[in-house]
Amino acid sequence: MSSNQLHNDDSILEDLAPEVDRDLHSKHVRGTALLWLIMTVGGVLCGIYLTPRLMPHMFAKEGRDAVLTVQVFTVVAAPVAALVCAVALYSLLHTRHRASLEHPPKDGKPLRGNALASGAWLIVSTLLVVFLLFWGLTEWSAQQVVHADSLTVNVVGNQWVWDFEIPAQKVRLEGDKSLIITKAISMSQLNLPIDVPVTFNVTSKDVTHGFWPVNLGIQVDANPRATTTVHATPDRLGKFVVRCSQLCGLNHAYMYTEANIVSDSTFEAWVAGGATKPIGSLIAKGAA
């Protein structure tokens, strides 16, 4: 058999082109479009209303950025995912061959490709990717802005304990009050004043740990002999958990502590009292 007897893909495509066009107006298209619409709406609603309810309350803009990203990306991905699911589901619903499972049904339409479908798919997916990238970079670069007078906190990872130190420094609290810390404060919990930008300098004494103040939505590894930096401005009163997010050996599961975000006055009182009392007891006093 010589090659000139063989069909090539392109000619087949051309043969079928009119039929493909007719396909686009058929009941199959309408059925699939309906499924797609339902699923898209479902996905979009999930993205807007469900995903933020799955995630905890965030204590900083960085954390809320993560929640918003999940929402937006779910909404953006919903039509694409819904299309794939709609076609698959439609094809499943139109299975008519249960009676004769032993034998293959007659062949389907020999659709070897469709320039329109492929081209549209490529363009849409490229646009979506450009959007995702734009979104991510915008958010990321906004998070990189470092406040000039932020509170410096040194974070040290040890197998399997976090310890924190607020070095001696002048802290600018809200309303241009300033608080002078004359002697470094060593803490087993992460006690921070509200609305003060914080720069965390993170390092480790042994192996790699992951500094993850969960509800701030930031994370950076603690590496031995290196200092990594991460920023956040806690803007909500309360407490949450600081975790190790990088497997660090035997007691990794227990390497966590608490973060307390307190008011300026509580923080000042705590520092004035030598920073030895549990900060929680001061909050309770203030409330009483």
Binding site: V87, S91, H97, T126
Partner: peptide
């Protein structure tokens, strides 16, 4: 995700109006 998307396109394009022999 662009080439991965094409794999999805190929999968659903193959299913589209197929005879779907559900073995």
């Amino acid at each position: 995700s662009i080439p991965t998307g094409i794999i999805f396109l190929a999968a659903i394009g193959t299913l589209w109006r197929g005879s779907n022999w559900v073995r």
